[in-house]
Design a protein around this nucleic acid. Structure first.
Lengths: 153, 153
DNA sequence: GGCGAAGCGTGTGCCGGGCACGCTAATCTG
DNA sequence: CAGATTAGCGTGCCCGGCACACGCTTCGCC
């Protein structure tokens, strides 16, 4: 990895830039804009996590998405009030309360995902299809094996 | 973008995963670990921004990195106390105060960047060099043209 | 059937972030 | 050249999110 091989450095730089911009541009804020008062960059991870993992208890979901149990509870309160999420008693465990998306909740997640996909599509518009496919493949591999791959989520 | 072309969707998915994990794994926290009490995931962007843009006023830097002017000031206070940053009166403008990295500050930024590069190198260890180079090129292009490219930073 | 463990919700304290104020200096105007 | 307007800075203040601690209920084991 001498001067002749700056690949790692290049990627690190681009990665830093990516992470910086995605927060600076408030990506999450924009993606969730206009989807109702309750859904914003803070509450969306709860919705998204439930969409991914299915009905879960607050504690489980917290472990899943890296938040404190109580924080999940508070955010779920807001989402429940907005009708995007509902609480059901766990049939298998009387103390547990399952958080589950309502149809509206699923719709919000779908809309947000579509927005992101559209944005990606737009920025890939001028790319040769082969490059785009290659990028998708390599990015996927990097994310799976990458410096963050200590968890499943 | 029918069923036959899921490329955009694939990238969006991987991108979401990447952003999620980088916060969930507290990437920034780890990268700045052990570099002194004052430097953490909150104060590092100030350091990094100064390293990129050179000596700047708090207001300018705030616009640069997407933070409120006063927030930059508070964080700069901590960094100044730790000797990583210094305040100089702007010779060209008597009301302005320039924030500038000290040698120690530059060293901290260099160390953090090296850590990230090392992590990337490690996860690229098993890759064919051609793939790695391709990935670097494509990622760079995507970041430059991507859905976030509304700013320079 | 009783007892420790696990889960949930909520009250409380703490910390980060943005707004508003007062001040100083630069720039514009007549 | 003097007054007025504008731009910049630091700090006091308030709001909101987060984690810890408590009390309660329920499960699992003995």
């Amino acid at each position: 990895m001498g001067v002749t091989d700056s690949t790692g450095q290049d990627i690190a730089q681009a990665l830093g830039l990516l992470l910086r911009r995605s927060t600076r541009a408030r990506l999450y804020v924009r993606l969730t804009e206009g989807l109702g008062e309750a859904v914003d960059d803070l509450t969306y991870p709860v919705l998204s996590g439930l969409a991914r993992a299915g009905p879960r208890s607050a504690a489980d979901l917290g472990r899943e998405i890296g938040l404190d149990r109580t924080t999940v509870t508070r955010r779920a309160d807001r989402l429940e009030q907005a009708g995007l999420l509902e609480r059901r008693p766990d049939p298998a465990d009387g103390r547990a309360t399952l958080l589950a998306l309502t149809d509206d909740g699923h719709a919000v997640v779908a809309a947000t995902r579509r927005r992101l996909t559209d944005a990606v599509d737009a920025s890939l518009a001028g790319w040769p299809p082969a490059d785009a496919r290659n990028f998708a493949r390599l990015l996927r591999r990097f994310v799976d094996e990458g410096p963050f791959a200590d968890g499943e989520g």
